[in-house]
């Protein structure tokens, strides 16, 4: 799994660092960022973060504030999992980073260069920041190969032979070598999403944004997609991952950002976040993914059934979890299926 080299272009100037590289952290969760590992040698220049957000604010015309003073850095080769309840602004955050949503305040910088000015060439930025969507969004009128070649040929003006060779190579590596001539409608959801990942990789991005890429998939297809992402991680791809797959986030992320109501409430390494979250809101959120027998014995006194009325005496202790009390997001991978 190591020698797959899905992204051979990432030949970093820095020596590969073993531990998670946590950039300078500002914001409410700054105290947990003590685990900074200045592991790079003293000769290494202080490279600007691959991606840097400062005080980003996203407000919709109707006055709804989707992101409020969001500030964080992403180091090269770092993988960040963005967690939080539905509607907390996770997806909006990703969409702001590659300009699908304009922001109202703050700056976003790639490799130290701001991309939030009025003269931003978004076409150029988006080539450097790849994005994969929840619903794959392959182009239905093009074959798999056509989907993969559109960007390289029309945007990057690359040679068709070279791009085709690259596309087939990447398809083979995600196990879809024989599907190049198929149309998206002939593929399963998991296959479509793998094609969508390859399509983003074709542009040779520096940063990859994954927006709930397994949320529309059947449980048995989630794995094949996440395996591809794990390979990318092994190859050193810098990634921002919005996901509801908690165990996946814990395994792959160098750092977890917990968003609630448009703000970064907490950021920590996955081990810290999942075992000892610092904030109550993070605890409440993580509790949604825990399934306990429905007794009243909970740590915080509110527990899973947080509807307010703790008393439900005639409930069978071993019965199924009372479904209506489980709000979104659904813990897909943890659901007994």
């Amino acid at each position: 799994m190591t020698a797959l080299h899905l992204i051979p272009e990432v030949a970093p100037a820095l020596a590969p660092v073993a531990g998670p590289v946590v950039g300078p952290v500002v914001g409410p969760g700054a105290d947990v960022a003590a685990a900074v590992t200045p592991d790079a040698g003293p000769a290494a220049r202080p490279a600007p973060p691959a991606l840097s957000l400062r005080g980003v604010r996203k407000e919709y015309p109707n006055g709804f504030v989707a992101l409020d003073d969001v500030t964080f850095d992403v180091a090269e080769r770092e993988i960040i999992a963005i967690l939080g309840p539905s509607g907390c602004g996770k997806s909006t955050l990703l969409r702001c980073v590659n300009g699908l949503e304009p922001i109202q305040a703050g700056t976003i910088a790639l490799d130290g260069a701001s991309v939030t000015g009025p003269g931003t060439d978004w076409s150029e930025v988006r080539q450097r920041v790849g994005m994969v969507f929840q619903n794959y969004e392959l182009f239905p009128h093009l074959t798999v190969l056509g989907n993969l070649l559109l960007g390289p040929l029309k945007v990057q003006k690359r040679a068709k032979a070279e791009a085709t060779e690259r596309a087939l190579e990447l398809l083979a590596r995600v196990g879809l070598a024989d599907r190049a001539g198929d149309y998206p409608r002939q593929l399963s959801g998991g296959q479509k999403q793998r094609v969508a990942i390859v399509r983003a990789l074709m542009m040779q991005p520096e940063v990859l944004l994954l927006d709930e890429i397994t949320a529309s998939l059947d449980p048995e297809m989630v794995r094949e997609v996440l395996d591809v992402v794990l390979e990318l991680a092994a190859d050193g791809m810098t990634m921002l991952i919005v996901t509801h797959e908690m165990s996946f986030a814990r395994a792959i992320a160098d750092r977890v950002l917990f968003l609630d109501a448009g703000q970064i409430v907490e950021q920590a390494t996955p081990d810290v976040f999942f075992t000892a979250p610092a904030t109550d809101r993070a605890k409440q959120f993580l509790n949604l993914f825990e399934f306990r027998t429905p007794t009243k014995k909970t740590a915080s006194g509110r527990g899973v059934g947080h509807r307010g009325d703790g008393a439900r005496p005639e409930r069978q202790p071993r019965g199924p979890t009372p479904w209506p009390s489980q709000p979104t997001p659904r813990p897909t991978a943890h659901r007994p299926s």
Binding site: R95, N98, G99, L100, W122, S123, E124, R126, Q127, G130, M131, F133, N135, E137, L138, F139, L150, G151, K154, V155, Q156, R199, A200, M203
Partner: peptide, 13 residues
């Protein structure tokens, strides 16, 4: 709309 955004995300003008 997502088809447009999918195109924009690839850098298409």
């Amino acid at each position: 709309l997502h088809q447009y955004q999918s195109g924009y995300a690839l850098g298409l003008k």
